[in-house]
Structure formats: structure tokens, C-alpha cells
Amino acid sequence: MMARVGRIGVTVAGLLALWHLAYVLNGRRDYLLPSPAQTLETAWRRLDTLWGHALVTYGEILLGLALGTALGVASALALVSWAPVRRWLMPVLVVSQAVPVFALAPLLVLWLGYGLASKVAMATLIIYFPVASAFLDGLRRTDPLWLEQARVMNAGRWATLRHIRIPAALPALASGLRVATAVAPIGAVVGEWVGSSAGLGYLMLHANARMQIDLMFAALALLAVFAVLLYFVVDATMRRLVPWQRETEAHDG
């Protein structure tokens, strides 16, 4: 654990050093690329403003993650449980994956307004697909041997779903959630860029327009730190949810 923290510390320090090097090589032009020190200084000075906007964006991301996951899990369960639902909705789901979600952002803002709702909807949409498709895939790939055992044991469909297929699909759901978590901030920020009155994306856009590049970097850093933390929290939770996965891998390897 200490070694892991140490490695992360070294990585972060290395990235900051690279950033500073790029700043020096770029001729110390603050209006193009501010130094890490200056970004930190600005972040500290404007902390009130930044934090207020950050809370809005964090809230959008978390709400989107919760809603997208819930909807994705529910859709996968519905699709796998009812054949008619699967026949009708599966093609819709597949085709809708091809629609670039970002292109919908202006529409969502038009329909849902400049507030929280359009950004949450955007994040939800982005999170929904990886979660739904990964979980559905997991539910459909149950080891046939387990299903045969269940049949010989006279298990009903629901009992089989609950005690065999869902647990068996949890590792797939975990991978879907990891992907979803990585893309979740994109949804919120794109939503804010298209139209909003608060949030880190909004702040970045305005800072950019006023040539406050250091403020823009400070906002970007806050977003990045949150995204990384969120990923670690989700990843750790998933590991606890599917503890057998590592055991099986260790056994196979």
C-alpha cells in the first residue's frame, strides 16, 4: 500500500516536472501555457469561485453516474428477461450506440434548459451505453455448465437469473462501470460548454475567452483530480464487489 502511494506520488511529481519543462521550452508564455506553480497560485486565490463551479460539475457527474448505471442495469435485465423486449429493443440499442451523443448536447440544452438537468441527462446518456451493453453481454454469456446444473437442480428461471446469471455477470458490469466512470466527466463538461450558467466547463469556456489561461488550467486540474479520484473509488468498489475475479485469474495464470 505504501509502495503504491509512493509510486503515485512519483508519477504525479514526474508529470508536474514535465509540465514545467514544457512551460520553460515554450518560452514561459503564460498566456499559452501557465506554469504549475502559477496554476496552483491562481487556484488558491480563486478557490471560492472554483469550488462553487466544481461542486456543480461534480454533482452532475455523480448524478449522471447513478442514473446511467441504474438505467443501464435495468435495461440489461429487461432485455435478458423478456424475449419480446429483446427482439424489439435490441436493434434500437445497437443503432442508438452509433448516434454521437455529443451531437445531442444542443438539443438536450434546448429541451431541458441551461440548468442541471441537461448536463445530468448528457452524462446519463454517455454512461448508460457502456453499462447496459457490458452487463447485457455478461448476462448472456453465463457458463452453460452452470445453467445445466441449475436445470438438473430444477431451478426456475428467476432463481437462475438471481443466483447464477446476475452474479456471473458482475465482472462484466464492473468493466462497463470502469469505462463509464472514465467517460462520465466528458458528458457533464460537454453539456456545460453547449450552454450553462455554472460548472467547471462553463468556467473554462469563460476563462478561455478572457485569456485567463491560468484559471482555465486550475479548473481543468480540479476536473482531472476529481475524475481520477472517482475512478479509483469505483475501481476499488468493483474489486470488493467481485473478489473472486482475482482469485480465478491468479489460478489460471
Binding site: 445445466e148 437442480m153 432463481a159 452474479p167 473472486w244
Partner: peptide
């Protein structure tokens, strides 16, 4: 079965009691 068909997420006891659980 030929291949080991135990459920990887369940402990030995829960694996043995699987039939009872499945039949409620």
C-alpha cells in the same frame, strides 16, 4: 460434470447448498 462447475463467487458451503437455494 466433467469440468469443475462450482460457482466462483460462492463459498464451499453455498456451492453445496446451491440446489436448495435455487428451489427456494
Amino acid at each position: 460434470a466433467q469440468r469443475d462447475s462450482l460457482l466462483p463467487w460462492a463459498g464451499a458451503l453455498d456451492n453445496v447448498a446451491l440446489g436448495a437455494r435455487l428451489r427456494g
